[in-house]
């Protein structure tokens, strides 16, 4: 990883929106719907910001998107997610400090990111016991959104080898 971006990105549009001011703006026909989706995942559902951030960071680690791994969305921090718990998440030390619901969500993410068809029956049952159908669907949409965004960043190239942790307002994802 590292090196030069594979595309000639346009000058930032200066909108203040992370997506609109990025190279993704080149794909003008899909831009509005991507912005709506990326912001809506955080603002239009019933899942807690902490739970969403755990899913996002689990995905970031799996894809190894250095920028995604460094970002901390403000709403999750305000919701009580600490760097200590994030470190536990990243080192797979989840025996303590995570609720059954959080562990079930992470198991759902791991199944999606790994071999989705091979999810163990016990894991599937645990997820169903912790979340409603609507919540499972919300987690699914959130995961696919986080995953395609991280994969997009890696695929376009130019990511730094490492990035310091940085807090980002979710408002920068919302129009």
């Amino acid at each position: 990883m590292g090196g030069i971006s594979r595309i000639s990105a346009p000058a930032p549009a200066g909108t203040g929106n992370l997506i609109r001011d990025s190279a993704l703006a080149l794909a003008s026909e899909t831009l509005d719907t991507l912005v709506t989706l990326s912001g809506g995942v955080w603002t239009d559902g019933t899942l807690s910001p902490t739970l969403l951030e755990l899913l996002r960071l689990r995905n970031a680690k799996s894809v190894n998107c250095t920028v995604c791994k460094a970002v901390r969305y403000d709403v999750a921090k305000q919701d009580g997610l600490t760097e200590e718990r994030i470190a536990q998440l990243n080192s797979d030390r989840m025996d303590e400090g995570f609720s059954d619901r959080e562990r079930a969500a992470i198991a759902f993410a791991d199944a999606y990111l790994g071999d989705p068809a091979a999810i163990p029956a016990e894991t599937a049952a645990r997820i169903r016991s912790q979340f409603s159908e609507a919540e499972i669907a919300q987690m699914a949409v959130a995961l696919v959104t986080f995953n395609l965004s991280s994969r997009c960043a890696v695929s376009l190239g130019g990511l730094p080898e490492s990035v310091p942790v940085m807090e980002v307002p979710v408002a920068k994802l919302v129009d």
């Binding site: 993704l24 068809a117 699914a140 696919v144 997009c152």
Partner: peptide, 29 residues
């Protein structure tokens, strides 16, 4: 712009296939 569009599309395609596989597996168990 075509490269960006293709990469976005691959994300949608890959993600939807993954979710379909995951839901099928969960419903089977």
């Amino acid at each position: 712009a075509g490269l960006v569009t293709l990469i976005e599309a691959l994300g949608v395609i890959d993600g939807r296939i993954r979710l379909a596989l995951l839901f099928n597996a969960m419903e089977d168990k």
